[in-house]
Design a protein around this nucleic acid. Sequence first.
DNA 1: ATTCTTGCAAAGCCTTTGCAACTGC
DNA 2: GCAGTTGCAAAGGCTTTGCAAGAAT
Lengths: 162, 162
Amino acid sequence: MNLQSVIVSQSPEDKFREYLTTGNKSQRFTGQQRDMVRFIFSHHDHFDAEALISDMQAASLKISRATAYRTLNKLVDAGLLRRLELGTRTFYEHDYGYPQHDHLQCTKCGKVIEFQNPIIEEAIKQASLAHGFQSEGHSFIVRGVCKECNIARMPKRQLDLI
Amino acid sequence: MNLQSVIVSQSPEDKFREYLTTGNKSQRFTGQQRDMVRFIFSHHDHFDAEALISDMQAASLKISRATAYRTLNKLVDAGLLRRLELGTRTFYEHDYGYPQHDHLQCTKCGKVIEFQNPIIEEAIKQASLAHGFQSEGHSFIVRGVCKECNIARMPKRQLDLI
DNA sequence: ATTCTTGCAAAGCCTTTGCAACTGC
DNA sequence: GCAGTTGCAAAGGCTTTGCAAGAAT
């Protein structure tokens, strides 16, 4: 996590519980779901389903693939997680308690860097207005090479010039 | 296509031929590849592999799935096509001869609207500078509801107020 | 002739799903 | 006890790939 958290009154676990029982729904909050929520909100920055499953298994937590996928979908629906489509793979990151931001993705090492820029909201507003579009969300990913990879790739001679 | 084309000196076909033989490569330009390039650059705005295959078959052009996928990858590599990751599906759009732009995607009807805004380049510049990042490209997709779908969903009473 | 491309079908990857056993409420 | 959840393994999409036959240069 690089950005400052947003202050929230409920714990992720409570928020999820609330979601599960809101409206006409009567979904259950199971032990496995509780483990997932706790694990995700104490450990991960952004991750994909497979990484979550193996990390939880490594932490001796019981988790089956099917349940992991099913619960991830619920967590997104509940507003706890945000889906992050990097290339063609789906990653997840904290949504609840974490500010809106965008991403720089390094094509060499795969690292993902978060950044914030209010200009982007402005661009969305302008484009929406121009096309009578009602925006609901966005995905903005800048691909390139991060500072570390850039230095590593640079021949020594060029480094001297900095 | 909604935006004004960029003037290019070579035909897409010639540019692809050039790519195939540039450097140490000695790749062949086959009839099927030629059909694909011609078809894509005369018909499609943006499309996915399956749509291309069935559209070409409907036009009585011979095309096998494997070759379509292989050639699409080459066309991206050659700079003729740009990959457009919408959600978790891969679409393609013209890159050569077509200006840089971004997308509004309607979550109701699936329509994709192109827009241009120089502010976005500025945002990329700022974020890259702040993180020592060397940007190579980006993907910016705004999800929401397009004008038509918005009107269709609106009760008659509210329409009267417009 | 040589080397690359094609086409089929099989395999890969990620994700969803049918169904019987199980469990939270 | 009822309705929702789990877990397995199978199936679903989309994309890649091994290999023998075919085509471009």
